[in-house]
Design a protein around this nucleic acid. Sequence first.
DNA 1: GTGAAAGCGCTAACAA
DNA 2: TTGTTAGCGCTTTCAC
Lengths: 343, 343
Amino acid sequence: MLKNELTSKRSTIRDVAKAAGMSIASVSRALKDPSTVRPDTRAKVLTAANELGFQVNRLAVDFRTGRTHTLMVLVPNIANPFYSEFFKGIEEAARLANYLVLIADTASDAFREADYFSMLTSGKCDGLIAHIGRFPENVLELFAGESAGRFPIVSCNRDAGVEIPTVGIDNYGAGRQAALHLLALGHRRFGQIVGPMEYEECKAKHAGFVDTLLEAGISHAEECQAPGDLTIASGRAAARKLFGLHTPPSALFIHSDEMALGAIQELRSCGINVPSDVSVVSFDDVNFASAVAPALTTIRVPRREWGAAACRLLLAHMEGKEAPEARTLTADLVVRESTAAPS
Amino acid sequence: MLKNELTSKRSTIRDVAKAAGMSIASVSRALKDPSTVRPDTRAKVLTAANELGFQVNRLAVDFRTGRTHTLMVLVPNIANPFYSEFFKGIEEAARLANYLVLIADTASDAFREADYFSMLTSGKCDGLIAHIGRFPENVLELFAGESAGRFPIVSCNRDAGVEIPTVGIDNYGAGRQAALHLLALGHRRFGQIVGPMEYEECKAKHAGFVDTLLEAGISHAEECQAPGDLTIASGRAAARKLFGLHTPPSALFIHSDEMALGAIQELRSCGINVPSDVSVVSFDDVNFASAVAPALTTIRVPRREWGAAACRLLLAHMEGKEAPEARTLTADLVVRESTAAPS
DNA sequence: GTGAAAGCGCTAACAA
DNA sequence: TTGTTAGCGCTTTCAC
């Protein structure tokens, strides 16, 4: 039995109406659109509401109006420091339009993803921004075809064959920049620690990097590539694997700052120094990237702008407007201390 | 299958009932509690629902039942990597009880705090876990007195004069451990980079540290203390201030790993080495703490357990049960590389 | 400017 | 086991 069921029930506009000596319609109006009632009516209602400790039941309002003024953001792992600024960008844009934003961590779990997605399809939020690596099959079905337009949703990752509005990053171009920088420094033996390759995002980073090496006449062998899941621990493991090779690389492109941190730590423990022995270019430019030693040379992803752009696109969709802006943001290289010419 | 949706509004159980040739009550039952209807009834309903692309309107369900099966977590700044594990702990505990959890970032903004708090008081969630430094006045009023028990809420920080169920950390004991460790190493000149001192949390860390020094006959001057806001940047600034002193400390207690990272970076840029010149004990043990160089000696806060405990306490409250467990968790020192004997 | 009344989509008595 | 029906608290015509 719930506690608030035991205590007195909360008052409704009906109670307020009785106390103020007017109809519930007037109470509703006085509360929601004061200009439509006479000042003294309004005053009476407000007084009564106050005395009764009246709190509007938003569940009822939302149900009645069919709108919740709430947006949701889905992420696979809130532990990734990447998301902090991303959320701030969304929050700011949402606030301007008078929306509240709620975050859900799906833990890359299909059940959770389905649960949270259903909050959109079942009306519990008005729109959804999905920053998940891959859309689950059942979700794709849901948003395919004609029903596509019915649920306002914006993706932050392009996913093959998905017709969902997307605000993405030019990952291919970013991978390219990483390669060009390392090439310019004089490196010729490259390694790569990649994120989950089922994500388009990681595929594109990888392709941009490898294609650019190829153009420079350098092939990027399969064995010089180690997979990770974007966490520190997976970076450590990947570095261990890569430097077990008999001709280890002199330069590394790593798909996230977190993995880079783990990799650099692992190398250090093996007596391999960054950047004098190995150069590292990573991805994201999270908060700690510029504060660790060596400070990370990384691809700066405009996370706040990304969030804001995604939110604006979502809002535009919800109002049936056209897309308000470009949908691919560029991420640029920031050179710090983790890269140098090969020794 | 989803065809009719594009032309008209979404279908309701009424539509399903008509299509299946039964009453809406049976549809409701078949969907919600299959065991209460005959198998063939159930099959008919499911088929009809499927054909119509029926999705239950959760807004209506929640409104009708008065329950949302949703918990909310309020944090002042999601950018703090501290929260990652904390959320996971909550999510896990919530999931066991069949609740969804949503996160809101209040940005320490009073308006936002009020907005999100009202989601609880207006019924949009069933319970709330607040991990904010300080409760805003208006919120305190709301939860004072008789209405206190009406809204299930759990705080993660003790706040003076607040009668809200709390799961906290023994910050005083942690501050004490930091001091004892540094003292044992032989340090005698101490500095401290503190978090916002209006938070009880930071006050307690500070008091535990200072009291322990005092017991050892060492006074901790006001000038050896610099304020920060728990971010990397504020750690840098605080370190700059502290080492402008003409007798700088040989050991630092810093209220968060993030600030410690900033401080260590600042010191490094001044040619001051950690730990050979200065020892650093920080707080939290976030993900990167063990991966940076030097690895941080820090107070390990059991974040996942904290989240889980807070969630269980909330759930217990919502069911009117007694508190299921102790409400103060201990945080213990983890010695790594950032502390050493003074030179 | 205000009130009466009709629901929004669903659940849960209560009947049958 | 199934159907009928009365609302949950609010917004919103539509009269007055």
